[in-house]
Amino acid sequence: MKIVLDRVAKGAHNAALPPATVSFQTGEVTLARAETEQRPSVLGLIASGRMRPDAGTVTIDGATDYSAMRKRIALIDAPDVCEPAADVTVAGIVAEELMFAGRASNPLAVNRRLGELGASEWARFAIGNVPPTVRIKLLAELALMRKGVDGLVITSPDRHGGDPNEWWELARGLAARDIAVLVVAGDASAAAIAASTMITRLGETAANRTFDEDPGRDDTDELPDLIVAPALEQRADRAATADRADRADTPERADSAKRAEEAE
């Protein structure tokens, strides 16, 4: 499944959502940036087929089919749209989602499902008081119980605080299960995730570089300063040693050595 939003916009003078182009597909997680209080939810609604844009196009596998999008894509935790009330208990939310999925929703079934999700300890907590990553995992996993759902749009997870890299890793894990995942978040979270990703890639590149591909090439310009600097110091030491050796062969040095021998 591939969803493509091409220059979609919403509202008078595009106030609700300025033109945005986003795509996400099965087996991948995509991060879309949206600022202000309203825009993340508007983008989430459009990306899940629950709102039509005033401009631009929305397609699923190359066709315009909002009904198919609504059946296959779950909208997760969108502010003022489908976020659970902050005072509802985790157990209550699980019972409700089990009922929507057509499954048994009695206390025994609720406890079993919480155990499967590793969230039993949070059963009696209000959803507004659980850690951000626990909240997102719980809501995403419950949505995936619904028949035919193979796509998720997670909206504004950064508003709950915490480290954005934690819920980003969670989203990556969901995508690895052949789920199409779109996360809508703010610029600060996008920057933090980009920085972490870059550091990881640099570490992987350094770890994989185990031999010199071209021994005859001078690689000093490609190395960090902390590595180049000692190399340059070693070159300077070698040059000074050679200079002292050259001076030892001069006539003055030879005469001095001869006088030393005669004195002995």
Rank of each mutant, 00 (worst) to 15 (best):
L98I: 01
R235I: 14
R146T: 05
A254S: 04
Q25R: 04
T210S: 14
A176N: 06
K137F: 10
A229K: 05
S67C: 05
A143D: 15
I193W: 00
D221T: 11
I227E: 06
F24I: 00
T57D: 02
V110Y: 02
T21F: 03
A257H: 11
L174T: 03
H13T: 11
V42Y: 06
A176E: 12
L139C: 08
A85V: 06
A55D: 14
L5K: 12
D163R: 03
T21S: 05
R103V: 07
A63Q: 15
W122T: 10
W167A: 01
L223R: 03
Q234W: 14
T241Q: 14
A32G: 05
I136T: 12
A85R: 13
A206C: 10
N106S: 11
D61L: 02
A263D: 10
D178F: 00
M198Y: 15
D214C: 05
A257S: 13
T89M: 06
A254K: 14
D219L: 13
P18R: 05
T57H: 04
G128W: 00
V183I: 06
V134P: 09
E141R: 13
I76L: 04
G151H: 02
E166F: 07
A143P: 00
A263W: 03
V22K: 06
A55I: 03
A190N: 06
L223C: 05
P107N: 10
A126D: 15
Y66A: 14
V4W: 00
A47K: 14
D246S: 13
V8R: 01
H13S: 08
A85P: 02
A191S: 07
D246R: 11
L98A: 12
V153K: 04
S196K: 13
F100K: 14
R146E: 11
L117T: 02
D246Q: 06
D249Q: 12
S23A: 08
T26L: 01
A263V: 14
T64W: 10
L117F: 06
K147Y: 14
K137H: 13
M51N: 08
P40E: 11
E204Y: 12
T133N: 11
R201K: 15
L98K: 15
A9K: 02
E96L: 05
M145K: 01
N165Q: 14
G173N: 14
V90R: 09
A95V: 04
A231R: 10
L182T: 09
M1V: 13
N208K: 11
G148P: 09
P132C: 10
L5A: 09
I227D: 12
E35N: 13
L170T: 06
I193Y: 02
W168Q: 02
T200E: 15
C82Y: 07
M51V: 11
F211L: 10
K258L: 15
V94I: 04
G162L: 06
